[in-house]
Structure formats: C-alpha cells, structure tokens
Design a protein around this nucleic acid. Structure first.
Lengths: 111, 111
DNA sequence: CGCTAACGTCAGCGACTACCGACACACGAA
DNA sequence: TTCGTGTGTCGGTAGTCGCTGACGTTAGCG
C-alpha cells in the first residue's frame, strides 16, 4: 500500500484519455462497452484505463448481469482538491510575504 | 503548443519527487542547489524536475548572480483547482441524481 | 447443453521518462 | 585573466506505460 493515497489519483489523472473517460462518467453512469465506443482505441485499452481509475479511487463500479456500470466517485476527487488547496494556500502566502519583504527592503534603502 | 494547459501541470504533479519539490518551494524561495540538497538524487535529476515544473507553469524562477531562486506559482495551481472543482461538481450532481432515481424506482415498486 | 454478448486479463512491443556522469556556460573574486 | 562556484544541458540506460491481439470468464437465451 502506498502511504500517499493521492499518488495513484494524480498519476491516473496525468493521462489525457483517463481524464476524458472521467469526464464522461462524471455526467452519466455508463457501461464499459459504451465508454470504449466513445474512443478510437481498443476496448482492451479502455478497460485498463478503467482499472487504473478504479484503483485510484476515482471510479465507482456497479455490476448488472454481465455489464459493468461506471461513474465518477466524488470522494476520490475531494482528496485531490484538499491537496491542491493546501499547496495553493502556502504558495500564495509565500508569494505575498516575499513581495512585502521586497517592498520593505526598498523602503529601508530609501530611508 | 498543447490546447490543454492543464495537461503539462497534471503530468508534472504525477511525479512524487516533483510534488515534494513543489511543497518545498511553496513555503520558501530556494536556490536550485538548496533544493537538490534536500533529496538523495543527483543535482542533475532535480534540475530536470525544476525544468518540467517551470514549463508546466507551476514554478517562478528568479536569477540572482549565478544562482536561480525558485518558488511555487499560485496561478499555475489555480487552474488545476478549477478543473478539479468542475469535475467534482459534475460527479456529485450525477451521484445524487442516480441515488434519487433509484429511490423513486423503489417507491414505484411499492406503490 | 451449446451459443452469444459483455468484460477482464495476459504477453509482448514501441515510446516515453527518471536517473546518472560528464561537459559547457555564466558570474564573481583575486 | 584565471579560478572556483552555481546551474543547465547532453548522451546513454534501466524501468515504466499505453496500446494491441488472443484468450479466459460470466450471465442470459435457445
């Protein structure tokens, strides 16, 4: 098990095709075959992408007879939002602090 | 040029080492050598990571003599927050809608 | 039971990537 | 100018990843 749960999710989202799949199932619940039909790659490739997304916690799978219905999992996306928000907050604070320090330095120069 | 500006940023964040670097420069402005010293890989590897992060718009570079000072760029992270927020909203709406439809179906069954 | 449909899984291949050591370049001090 | 310091860049290598065709599996129908 990876100690960082966000790692798998970020690696999953790094792939453009997987982002497209996720957007597809964010609006509707779709079967594997329907998802595969939306792309020009083999059904195998799509199936593997679905596996990656599911293991990253970004997808919810529901079986209905031989079909497997997928939809995006909001909880999986939530943790990524947190990670980004924290990073963003820190970066913003640091940026502001540095700008202020620079301004102060200028004032001392001219003083 | 890639039509999707978030692609480079997401691919950059997919690498654990780059996330660690970003967290480092999110709190302080650091020189390339200082960043490299914080990890056990070669200075070369870190330099390449910095290039990737910079080209993804996640890093701000400032030159001071021979040194290059880096810090996280909030604007670069902001666009990723938007992308995630949109995905999250859609996924949440869809999830709620499906649950409601399921509940309604049960009511009709028992009606 | 045999047959079909809907999927996942496996083995292999080409492309990409994180890493390293060696080298090149820019800047400041003596 | 010569030397040392701080960094980016290049060539090469081992490992990873996305893709494909072939095969295995499960559920429903005749």
């Amino acid at each position: 098990m990876t100690p960082d749960p966000a790692d798998a999710a970020l690696r999953a989202l790094a792939e453009p095709r997987r982002r497209a799949i996720l957007q597809l199932v964010a609006h509707d619940e779709l079967a594997a075959g329907e998802i595969a039909a939306a792309f020009e790659v083999s059904r195998t490739a799509v199936s593997q992408h679905l596996t990656v997304l599911k293991e990253a916690g970004l997808l919810h799978e529901r079986r209905e007879a031989t079909r497997r219905l997928y939809r995006a999992r909001p909880e999986g996306l939530a943790q990524l939002r947190e990670l980004l928000d924290d990073l963003w907050d820190s970066a913003l604070d640091t940026a502001r602090r540095l700008v202020e320090a620079d301004t102060t330095a200028h004032h001392e120069e001219t003083a």
